[in-house]
Amino acid sequence: MYDAAFGLAATLYAVSGVMLLLQLARGPTIAVTRLGPWVLLAAAAVHLGLDVRYWLTPGGGPFAGIRPSLSTLALLGAGGYFALRQARPRFDVVGAFVAPLALFMLLASRHSNDTTAAPLGALTVLHVASVIIGTGAFTVAFAVALAYLLQERQVKQKRLRGLFQRLPPLDVLDEVGFRFVAVGLPVLTLGVVTGLMVIARTAARAASFETWQRTVGLAVWVLFAGVLGLRIVAGWRGRRPAIGTVLGYAGVIAVLVGYYLRGLHA
């Protein structure tokens, strides 16, 4: 039953990703691609069903380990996307970047209900939850930043057909990306602070393996703080913050991949 539902969710994410990518690349010439957001919604619904079932098991929860957290992150990304497309027109195609990420995270969370890890302490759960929720906001910010960079290239290179018509206006993308970073950063900050507290408590057990992750994690925080701070202080807008967001998100994914791989080999 789990395998079938998991397979269905993964298939729906993959199909929605293809549909949304086609819609982004070709426009509504293939009518069925307009269903992309709804297929993504169906994928998220099946996925949520799987996760809720797991959350209700003893020791389960949305942040009960790296793999359940990745699953939750996928749901947060999909949820953020839907909230965005409800609030703003022309944001459907941003799903073309969200769906593959959600699929990737779902696949990485495979068998998250098989975890045998010891229950996490409250502080650790708060740390993981903050990091994952912040990263959920950054997932949408990342998708929006990619859309911004594509649209900016279209306008700069005077390619006013196709993508230009399908992507949202530049200033709207810039503003929305900023808002998601502004939401994600304080939550991530809480995750960093709680993470430092967890490290302080378990310093003796900290492996050298984690050092680079902490370094990258802090670098990511500094990067996002820079994106946000420079905008507020110096009016940093447009291409450079978008690149900062993309790089920051790549750092977040690197850290998560590190934890994931450590979990596999623990």
Binding site: Q151, V155, L160, F164, P168, P169, L170, D171, V172
Partner: peptide, 9 residues
């Protein structure tokens, strides 16, 4: 107008 809307909304 089209260009301005593509930039500013």
């Amino acid at each position: 107008v089209d260009l301005a809307r593509g930039i500013f909304g």
